[in-house]
Design a protein around this nucleic acid. Structure first.
Length: 727
DNA sequence: ATAGGGTTAG
């Protein structure tokens, strides 16, 4: 008969120094291994009670150190010593489950000659914790079959399975069973499981009904309800629940605060947000990481990005989610460059980004069209094996589309694992921006076959595609067929596309009628129509609109600039002066035209006639070289595009030094030996004369030039542009 | 003896 009782004092002393495995003695007087909790055998067994107490304390240690191996060793030891280990079966099962050994637990479970309700509950809860809902349900059914009635413990686990697996009718049915058993809302555990389940099903009314029926509501139940409201966009309701919870004297904890702060952020309610944040600190959850993270998000959603940065600085050890929230917040507040530098810092502090972080970083790159940096992030994504993730896939399509790399966008699109409407929209928009109208239409019409419903963004994308490819009738047809679609809420953006489409095609009247359909139309719509008037030289309509718009908003910068340009292009210098005076009076400054190129991840920006770049000499030489060559191809400067009252010579010289030309010349100088394409970005539209000039330059240098202006991409190649001179 | 709620996205 083996000896099995150990000396507890030694055991405790040794386990304090280490926390790893249990060494099983083969002899009665074994050496004590430094790195093991050891069965130091000192005396003969006394009784069963003492032995089981000993094993129970060992099992407790195992749970704390989360080691399956140790639990197995205890089990073996019990068997080796002839201790009836099944008498501690529920303890062992629990220990296995808490250390991740679900299979071991199940073996023991099946071996038990009779199973107490507690064992069933432990096993079911274990399956739920390990995301093995199917098994949990299976066991739950078998339990009935064996005549064991579920209790409140069982039910709270089972409701969680239904909510995890989205089994609505099963959940309802079991709720019914619970009521029959008298456990409907008997305690806060069952109650919060039900509240959470209905909330996850999106059935907030049912969730609320259950919550109201629970007599002894606790903080978990309230939090589940608050989260439910928050996740279904009912943040106001969430705050009300929080208020009534406080009123009832239930103390909020870090879980509650983080959820409530999220709701404040969603409501962009900085006043309540600040109060709740103060309360969080007062309640002692100042350094609870999730609450801190939610506070950070709340500030960034309210536009207080500095406050958000400060919240981040206060974190001692920011985790992945905190870093991600910070980066997301920065991107949403147009601080893309800081966002990317934080992203780099995060990687340096060895926090591995996940798909949330990476998609935010991609958005940062795509909104500034930073192709090189975007590609670097794409590399990280490949290394982490996250390229199949759906949000990442969509963000990649978006990135390459926004950088004008239609082929890459298509590659990313084709390698998507599952298609939903977002990447289709992104791909369509990529086509739209580069003027591939037919491809965009093809994608649009293929949505039906894929079972995808178009949404608001789809409509913007396809209308932009039609707009940029001058598909007037097609655009009109799509607009009228989708304008009454339940799924689509028409915004001014949709009208803007249509007004531009019609206006540029010369249907000024139709465009104006469309604007009049809009309830309180934005100035932007009128501005678009104005610029159509300018293209078609309709000064009469233009005058009417200018007066109307300036009556509505006399200080609108865009309108004043555009009007001044219209008057300048028709030689009405007196009116130009009037517009400029209005601008000066309103203290408005025209935002200067600017172009930039990204060379080796460094931006070089240029303004017209600006020679402050350290390589100005080379740029000038390059421009002169190009000037000679393009003149050979028949280039004649078109000074109609100069909207200043200058003489012809001055106008010509002014054209030569438009910002996009400086940028192209610089890029060409830096990459002279290469054959890759030149990419240039401009904040405003490319003028007609530069457009002609760039077409010719692309022929002279036999390289593709991709230019993104405020509205679209122009792919210049061999003397032609993808926009077909319509933009 | 066994149980419940949270922070980040295209």
């Amino acid at each position: 008969m083996p000896v099995f009782i150990a000396g507890f004092p030694q055991l405790l002393r040794f386990k304090r120094t280490v926390k790893t495995s249990i060494f099983i003695p083969t002899q009665h007087h074994q050496a004590l291994h430094r790195k093991d909790i050891t069965f130091a055998v000192q005396r003969q067994p006394t009784n069963f009670k003492e032995a089981s107490e000993f094993y129970i304390s060992l099992i407790k240690e195992c749970i704390a150190s989360k080691s399956i191996a140790q639990v197995r060793k205890i089990q073996l030891h019990m068997m080796g010593c002839g201790f009836p280990h099944l008498s501690l079966g529920n303890k062992l099962i629990d220990a296995f489950l808490k250390c991740g050994g679900v299979a071991d637990a199940r073996v023991l479970f099946d071996e038990l000659p009779q199973r107490h309700i507690v064992v069933w509950n432990s096993m079911i809860a274990g399956y739920v914790r390990h995301n093995m809902g199917e098994e949990a349900i299976h066991l739950y059914k078998r339990m009935h079959f064996e005549g064991v009635f579920p209790d409140d413990f069982t039910l709270s686990s089972v409701f969680k399975v239904f909510s995890d697996l989205g089994l609505v009718s099963e959940g309802r049915q079991t709720h019914g069973h619970a009521v029959v058993l008298g456990l409907g809302a008997s305690n806060a555990f069952v109650g919060s499981a039900l509240v959470d389940m209905y909330a996850k099903f999106g059935k907030m009314r049912d969730s609320r009904l259950v919550a109201d029926r629970v007599v002894e509501k606790d903080v978990v139940l309230f939090t589940a309800l608050i989260v439910g409201y928050g996740q279904h966009g009912e943040d106001g309701e969430a705050l009300e629940v929080f208020g009534s919870m406080i009123k009832q004297g239930v103390k909020a904890n870090d879980y509650t605060f983080s959820s409530v702060l999220v709701s404040c952020g969603n409501l962009e309610d900085i006043c309540v947000g600040k109060v709740v944040h103060g309360l969080t600190i007062k309640s002692g959850f100042e350094s609870a990481i999730a609450s801190q993270t939610s506070a950070l998000t709340m500030y960034s959603k309210c536009g207080l990005i500095d406050e958000s940065l400060r919240a981040f600085e206060l974190m001692v050890t920011p985790n992945l989610v905190s870093w991600t929230s910070l980066i997301v917040g920065l991107v949403h507040n147009s601080r893309q460059e800081i966002a990317l530098s934080k992203f780099r810092q995060m990687i340096c502090s060895s926090v591995t980004p996940n798909s949330f972080t990476l998609s935010a970083a991609l958005v940062a790159c795509s909104s500034l069209a930073m192709l090189d940096q975007g590609k670097q992030i794409h590399n990280i994504i490949m290394k982490l094996g996250l390229d199949q993730q759906k949000f990442i896939g969509a963000a990649l399509v978006d990135l390459y589309g926004k950088c004008g790399c239609v082929e890459f966008a298509r590659l990313a699109y084709d390698s998507l694992f599952e298609i939903d409407v977002v990447p289709v929209n992104a791909m369509m928009y990529a086509y739209a921006q580069s003027g591939f109208g037919l491809e965009a239409l093809e994608l649009f019409y293929s949505m039906k076959d894929k079972g995808l419903e178009p949404n608001d963004v789809t409509l913007v994308s396809i209308l932009s595609a039609c707009n940029n490819s001058r598909f007037v009738d097609e655009g009109r047809r799509i607009f009228s067929s989708l304008r009454s679609n339940q799924n689509i809420k028409l915004t001014q953006e949709h009208y803007a596309c249509m007004v531009d489409l019609l206006g540029r095609a010369g249907r000024l009247q139709e465009a104006e009628m469309l604007i009049n359909e809009v309830e309180s139309p934005d100035v932007i719509l009128w501005r678009i129509l104005l610029s159509a008037c300018r293209i078609h030289g309709d000064l009469a309509v233009a005058n009417r609109i200018i007066n109307r718009v300036l009556e509505l908003s006399p200080r609108d910068e865009g309108t004043l600039v555009l009007s001044s340009n219209i008057y300048a292009s028709t030689g009405n210098w007196a009116q130009v002066l009037e517009m400029k005076t209005s601008m000066r009076d309103a203290r408005l400054k025209k935002s200067p035209a600017m172009s930039w190129v990204d060379i080796d991840s460094t931006f070089h920006t240029f303004k017209a006639g600006d020679w402050s770049h350290p390589r100005s000499k080379e740029i000038k030489e390059m421009l002169e070289e190009l000037s000679v060559k393009v003149k050979h191809l028949g280039y004649v400067p078109d000074t109609r595009f100069i909207l200043q009252d200058l003489d012809e010579n001055e106008k010509e010289r002014s054209l030569c030094y438009h910002s996009e030309r400086l940028a192209i010349a610089f890029s060409l100088w830096r990459t002279y030996q290469k054959t890759t394409c030149i990419r240039v970005y401009k904040n405003l539209r490319v003028c007609g004369d530069c457009h002609t000039w760039i077409k010719l330059v692309s022929k002279v240098i036999a390289r593709e030039i991709i230019a993104r202006d405020a509205k679209r991409f122009h792919h210049f190649k061999d003397g032609f542009c993808s926009c077909g001179d319509y933009w």
